[in-house]
Design a protein around this nucleic acid. Structure first.
Lengths: 195, 195
DNA sequence: GCCCAGACCGAACGATCGTGCTATAAGTTG
DNA sequence: CAACTTATAGCACGATCGTTCGGTCTGGGC
């Protein structure tokens, strides 16, 4: 790997961490340069604009998410086990095990859901992919006979996402120590209803 | 009402609308002055700092939320009917019937959940109050005999919040036309499990 | 009708934003 | 080692940020 690519990785690691806390808009080139001990212009040369930096951050975060959540889940046995694995790894991601600021996609979604442009477009693409993945994992649970045949996979995806979003809200904002336990309960109830 | 108070209301109406789209950080004094056709300094004089403007916006939004969601819900008959009313008015709020950018609290929560300070503190207070209100409304449903006595009101509050958050995500970000119908289904399932 | 508190404006401040230019240092390749 | 590419730094730009200050206009109480 060339020198440029390796420092770019360092930059994106730091940028992703910062953006998970202050958002993609709050992520500023000056502070990012300071944190990576680079000059503002030296850092800027890696990306030709701030928008392109934001896009790269999203792509970088997506890779991490796939590596740490999606792939480990798909390694579990098909059906309910796999759905459980997906939930557990995803919950750990939201808890902030990976990024100090928690789920960067949730933060970005709130920021950009009313601001058209390439960043929003990429984010929408990623989140649609995620919904498709969840639905697909659930669907294999149907074919395995673990879940009811009439169950709607996208209904399940939206419900599961809701459990995670509510967990983030209760745990990270309100600081409720029961949040995780409640999320687990909701998940069990969701599974029970699908069986 | 004095002149100052009336223009302040106009300012806060516009500010709340803007902040629901671009967030409390994205809300800038310059653009707010332009939109209200005031000078930057003239507008600034109403608030002594940007932080105090953000606090006032949150307080203003809270009043609207209480008027348009909480109070109408409490006007419904105790028990399940009241829970349904709360859900429906809250859903309309999230849909953007009131503010073009949707739920300003959700946007602010994502922005400030990792940024300590008075704004975050006020937001946490408001959201805790909301959770208490939801739990209390559900509790009266228990005493009315509509819901199981062992049901956990705060579990219900977190679950209901999750349904709304997932709706916002699916509808406003992904543009899924089925989002609202799915939210309604989730709500019915949640009620059914509580009975 | 006078007078004053307060609403409002114009101009300017230092800081920081994103973004270019030019030069030099470092890395890569032959 | 030479030659060339690339990574990084320094400096400066126009714009915009939040904020301050001094002044003008104006509505309401006497």
């Amino acid at each position: 790997m060339s020198k440029g690519d390796s420092t770019k990785r360092v930059i994106l690691d730091e940028a992703t961490e910062i953006a998970s806390k202050v958002g993609l808009q709050g992520l500023t080139i000056g502070t990012l340069a300071t944190r990576t001990e680079l000059s503002k212009s030296g850092l800027f040369a890696h990306f030709r604009s701030k928008e392109s930096l934001q896009l790269d951050v999203l792509r970088h975060a997506r890779e991490r998410f796939v590596d740490l959540v999606v792939r480990p889940a798909l390694a579990a046995p098909r059906g309910e086990r796999r759905v459980r694995a997906l939930f557990e790894h995803w919950l750990a991601w939201c808890r902030g095990d990976v990024l100090g600021g928690g789920c960067i996609f949730t933060a970005a979604a709130a920021e950009f859901d009313d601001q058209p442009g390439p960043v929003r477009d990429l984010l929408v693409n990623d989140e649609r992919d995620l919904a498709d993945t969840v639905a697909q994992v659930f669907r294999t649970g149907i074919t395995e006979g673990h879940f009811r045949a009439e169950a709607d996979p996208y209904q399940f995806a939206q419900d599961l996402h809701g459990i995670l979003l509510a967990y983030i809200h209760s745990a990270r904002l309100l600081g409720d120590p029961m949040a995780e336990q409640r999320a687990a309960r909701s998940f069990e109830a969701l599974l029970a209803a699908a069986r």
